[in-house]
Simulated assay, not measured.
Amino acid sequence: MTQISGKVASSDRFKSPFSRGQSRQKQQKSLSDRFVDVMIVIAIIAVVVVVLYPLWFIIIASFSDQTKVSSGQVTIWPQGFTLAGYLRVFQDTRIWTGYRNTIIYTVLGTALNLVVTLPAAFALSRVEFKPRRLLLFLFTFTMYFAGGLIPNYLLFKQLGLLNSMWVFILPGAVSVWNLIIARSFFETSIPEDLHDAAQIDGLSLIGYFMRVVIPLSSAIIAVIGLYYFVGHWNDYFTGLIYIRDDSMQPLQNVLQSILLANQTNQMGSGNGGQNVMQQQQIADQIKYGVILVSTLPLLVIYPFLQKYFNKGVMIGAVKG
């Protein structure tokens, strides 16, 4: 036993000053910085609660009796569980048409965006492509100067895009911001040595892009794909201005028309105070249900893309 303790003591004696300093720092942190660590954790929890509670309140309010919601009884859990708001929303057959249209516009639009943006960004990232600076300037110019609403309406009318699904897809085929992010990713994150190796193997530039660059760009594809997907899903202005056929309206415009129709019924419901209060409660139920119906698909998709989202934004934006 004495022999073992002597070996331990000798090993401690021959430890470097750096390792002994590290152990002392760990002891000091565990003793003196514990309060700071606790305060940081409390601050993070407070921020998470502040961000998530409004969403949680909408969820529980949509399943609660609106009388208890308006009286302030609903805070953490649903009170007077009911599905009346969702039943009123889904009883309108237009909402299924709106869902179908939005899914079609979003899937086709996002696919076209990726097909156009990725090759364009790759071309602008190549040094041997001489006009790239001029083209990038022309792309960037459109971010600050546009024709305006009336010229766009006249242009879409002449192109035959009004009251057509293509008005949701073709005009926004390229987002300059996403193009710049993808270009920065290709310039900074794809080694040029891979291109040299691909040339030795006999690959053309298109083959190099399809077989090497695209498989290595899953992060940036997920990022700009999510950007495009959210943009198409939340597109409200296009349907409001350029679509007159109700069967072509996306989900956001259908939900807005449901809310407006309910508010109109509330205003013309009569002079009785009790009746007006009931109509207001129905309107609130529909409002909470509409918010969840329109945002639920995005809430479901985002967690699967979060790791790519964080990685792709940092690589494409910070290094660029």
Rank of each mutant, 00 (worst) to 15 (best):
Q249L: 15
F139D: 04
F145Y: 12
N253I: 14
S269E: 00
I181Q: 07
G98E: 02
G160P: 05
V290P: 00
K319S: 10
L154N: 13
L83F: 13
L114Y: 06
V276D: 02
D246W: 07
I224K: 02
D196T: 04
I301G: 03
S189T: 12
Q274L: 11
I40L: 13
L108E: 00
L170Y: 09
T110C: 03
A182D: 08
D33N: 14
F14V: 14
P191F: 01
Q249K: 14
D235S: 12
V49S: 11
T117M: 15
Y153I: 06
A123D: 00
S70Q: 06
F139M: 04
Q249G: 00
A261S: 15
V47E: 10
L52R: 06
I214F: 05
L255C: 12
Q252N: 11
D246P: 01
V293E: 00
F156G: 05
G268C: 00
P250Q: 11
F57R: 10
I301V: 14
I44A: 15
N253H: 05
G272E: 14
D235K: 09
P151S: 07
N310C: 09
V41G: 11
L251A: 10
P215I: 15
Y105D: 04
L251H: 01
L292M: 10
I150F: 08
D245R: 06
A120H: 10
Q28L: 14
I206F: 08
I103P: 01
Q280H: 03
P17K: 12
G320M: 11
K307P: 03
G172K: 04
A198V: 01
E192Q: 06
L135E: 09
V318T: 09
I169S: 00
T82V: 06
W56N: 12
V47C: 13
V47A: 14
V36F: 10
G21P: 00
D92I: 04
V300M: 07
L118N: 04
V313R: 02
D12H: 08
L138K: 03
Q266M: 13
S32H: 11
I103T: 12
M165S: 15
G160L: 02
L226Q: 04
L305E: 06
L108C: 13
Q158C: 05
I44S: 14
P303S: 05
G202A: 08
I45W: 13
Q252L: 13
L149V: 14
F209G: 00
I76F: 13
A146I: 07
G109A: 06
R244Y: 01
S5L: 12
V107C: 02
R100E: 09
L138C: 04
P215S: 14
K29M: 11
L296A: 15
Q280M: 09
L124H: 03
V213G: 01
N265A: 15
M39A: 15
L149E: 09
Q280R: 08
M314H: 09
L251K: 05
I200N: 03
F156T: 01
Q27K: 13
I42C: 12
G98C: 04
L240A: 14
M314L: 13
Q266N: 07
I258W: 03
P78V: 05
Q280K: 03
V230C: 06
M39D: 07
R13V: 09
Y144W: 15
S269I: 12
I206H: 05
Y308D: 07
R94H: 09
A61C: 09
S10L: 14
Y302Q: 07
F309G: 07
M277T: 03
I40Y: 07
